[in-house]
Design a binder for these strands. Structure first.
Lengths: 205, 205
DNA sequence: ACTTTTGTTGACCATTCGGTTAAACTATAT
DNA sequence: ATATAGTTTAACCGAATGGTCAACAAAAGT
């Protein structure tokens, strides 16, 4: 059969629907029926295309992860100066999360649900974050005396935390700080500047 | 009947078991059977003491939340100097999370699952975080010129993020940074000093 | 035209899970 | 002795949900 014509192929419709549902509800929260509805087909057909929920889930997430994490690793492992590296990391990460606001929550969710399976199967060996070079770079800068004495580990944690956490805790942030959707988006946009500035102010001599 | 003697009362056993199961698996993940097993009783008795899952859940979480959040609010709203306030906040918060490592994840989980119900019912009106005074204090310090010009909102976000995120993303942190349980605990203990230092270095003039 | 392959459907099945009910047993209080 | 509250056992209900199946429809191959 050839098909693949005017409207999206059924497979494509399923993937789009599944992505939407998985991203918002997580693996366990997602219902096969919801995905079928979202794709405008029936449940049996879902299983016809993707044997079961796990297979479908894997398909979705792998696609997403294998696009994003390599980009982050490239930044971590590149040879650019520390401050610029921090700026690029924050910029890239927040850009991604502005486009896929549910991604970080989704990742954490899956990690908590089944750490072994998720971290191995989905991050495989290539996608796994590799902060080693970044940590060494910080240590070198400290030794050169170009920045204050600071623990590379804590600096990395601070960087990750400030970048990712607001997206993970978004409903809490919005509620407790009185932000609507648009304002939240704007604040996150500001953070692309604010976070690097905050960090650099803290560690520069 | 009087009983209430040697071993814990059944009610107490249930509450302890429920707490453990809810904290690790969240509301939806928790099974009534698991809770019964954990308490060493059977499912019927569970429903005899607590009408249904929701009631039991509320009982557990309210107890936990109403102990902790008022303490945090007291710090935010107290009259102590900014830098000291930051130190106390971090110290108190990390202490709590060292004792209840699953609490932050648990809170986020429930917020995502059902924001309206959770935020209202559980935080009620008294437990709700009230960062207003803290934000104003930052603004005053900026105006007085005692700290650098910084957005109070972003500073608060940074503070919360750096303090809470590592606990929320714990499995990821441990795996990607190669920390075992003990090392993680030690690193978090260091953060009680590191975070305030990092912030103060960034904003002091 | 026919057969085979691929796509699609609705009905159905098995399991899980929260919750109920009824009957029996136990220990205490009166 | 009897009533009462606590506890167990076991069967059961109903809804939700992942997954299967047989039959039908549409293409594609011949």
């Amino acid at each position: 059969m050839v098909k693949k014509s005017i409207d999206l192929s059924t497979e494509e419709k399923i993937l789009q629907g599944a992505r939407k549902v998985f991203m918002t509800k997580g693996m366990t929260g997602a219902r096969m029926q919801d995905i079928a509805d979202e794709a405008g087909i029936n449940k049996s057909l879902l299983h016809y295309y993707f044997r079961d929920k796990d297979k479908l889930f894997e398909m979705i997430f792998l696609k997403e992860a294998q696009k994003f994490f390599p980009r982050i690793n490239m930044i971590f492992e590149s040879g650019i100066p520390l401050f610029e590296k921090i700026q690029r990391f924050v910029h890239e990460y927040i850009d991604e999360m502005q486009q896929n606001p549910y991604l970080p929550w989704f990742v954490l969710n899956e990690i908590h649900r089944d750490p072994e399976n998720f971290l191995y199967k989905v991050w495989g060996k290539d996608n796994l974050p590799r902060p080693q070079k970044f940590l060494e770079q910080i240590e070198q800068e400290v030794k050169k005396g170009t920045i204050k004495r600071i623990s590379p580990l804590h600096l990395l944690m601070n960087l990750l935390s400030m970048t990712i956490f607001p997206f993970v805790a978004r409903p809490m942030m919005e509620r407790n700080l009185g932000l609507d959707e648009l304002q939240f988006r704007a604040v996150m946009e500001q953070r692309k500047q604010e976070i690097p500035k905050f960090i650099i102010d803290s560690i520069k001599k």
